[in-house]
Design a protein around this nucleic acid. Structure first.
Lengths: 218, 218
DNA sequence: ACCTGAACACCGTTCAAGT
DNA sequence: ACCTGAACACCGTTCAAGT
């Protein structure tokens, strides 16, 4: 008779909000339940367990990717990165759900199509497609100086400490690292950070594709 | 008077053994203590907290990398992958410890040196070095059909299930994915799997290095 | 120096029971 | 169908106390 207090939708929405604000570690069954004013056990009507909840969160992320069926590899990577950057705290959940979501399937299908067209074998194309996906995720998760769930002030202090620790290293042993201290701890131009990695990946694929299609090279 | 029951060394050794056998999730303070026959609180004499223990584990992993100061980028990636493959369960701990361990510093220093020599800027070289490291880790962690901490039989059943689920997809919408079902769920030639990704990365770096050193291209 | 006892504030999860 | 109560087996961690 009474309207349900929860739904899969609303639970996922709340879980995402918590993750965005405080990081994935803050997403617990009990915490979500608390936010809704229900008991933790209420979750188990809507999800078999926490793993399923997190999987659904990963699928949601994939489904936020709008895939142009004519997209290039670079475009695929770019829209994927954008989708993950919108919710960096859960970017790590995408990996397992690539083949369990409409969005992930669409991206993968197009990637395999492009790679097959470039002369890669099925095994190669599969490996490269996975690489692309993982690159996107690790870029977002590992973006130096961009940890989720801490305040801007805390983040800055953390970066400063890391940078200082590097500065204290032996300049004899690690001249390049010391010189790159700030670049290694913090990204000053975010767009460049992503561009470099995407360029690198696309260049690698194109170069290998070319060697694949050279006659005497098989 | 009595010899200590524990040491940082022995605790890390045990933690690693547990991780290797049952996965990182099985590595708990209480579990390690149990294996030594001591109370969980004994750990806190040797480590400030669990985070520090895991960090030390990550450093141990880096320090198992033996760096040839003359190594090429491909060689660096190769020995790194080998080190991680020896302990896939803790490969994810390497990321945060790259600049907090002798081994990680040595690898990074050499990578930055090579990349600077190829004409990359400090920011680019830093991003690319991190990419290399993350590629190595994600390859090992994400190796399809190689989850840690489950029996060979369980693993095979899991792979078969995933493969079957892909096979049931619409061949109209996802012809390439369906055709690549087995390649996407399981690696048949492990060495090829790693070689493809390393080749791709190295090719990308070389291609971009070339464009960097072309006069009219800056 | 090195470890224990007792306690605290958390987790995820099951299962019977309520409405 | 949807949620609660009570309980279980876990976590990491603190702090005073023991030897």
């Amino acid at each position: 008779m009474n309207k349900p207090l929860l739904s899969r939708e609303s639970v996922l929405e709340k879980a995402l909000a918590i993750a965005d604000a405080e990081g994935l570690a803050a997403v617990t069954i009990r915490r979500i339940a608390g936010e809704f004013g229900v008991t933790p056990m209420a979750m188990y009507w809507h999800f078999a367990n926490k793993e399923e909840l997190l999987a659904a969160l990963g699928q949601r992320l994939w489904n936020s990717v709008e895939v142009d069926p004519e997209a290039s590899l670079r475009e695929l990577l770019t829209i994927l990165v954008e989708a993950l950057r919108a919710h960096p705290a859960i970017a790590g959940l995408a990996d397992t759900q690539m083949l369990s979501s409409e969005g992930g399937l669409a991206v993968t299908e197009r990637a395999l199509e492009l790679l097959a067209g470039s002369g890669f074998s099925v095994a190669e194309a599969s490996a490269i497609a996975r690489n692309a996906m993982q690159l996107a995720a690790t870029m977002v998760i590992g973006e130096p100086g961009a940890d989720v769930g801490i305040s801007a002030a805390e983040r800055e202090a953390l970066v400063a400490m890391k940078c200082q620790r590097i500065g204290e290293l032996s300049q004899q042993k690690y001249p390049r690292i010391v010189a790159a201290a700030s670049a290694l701890t913090e990204v000053d131009d975010v767009e460049e950070y992503y561009r470099v990695s995407i360029d690198l990946f696309v260049a690698g694929v194109e170069t290998m594709a070319r060697s694949r299609s050279l006659p005497g090279f098989s």
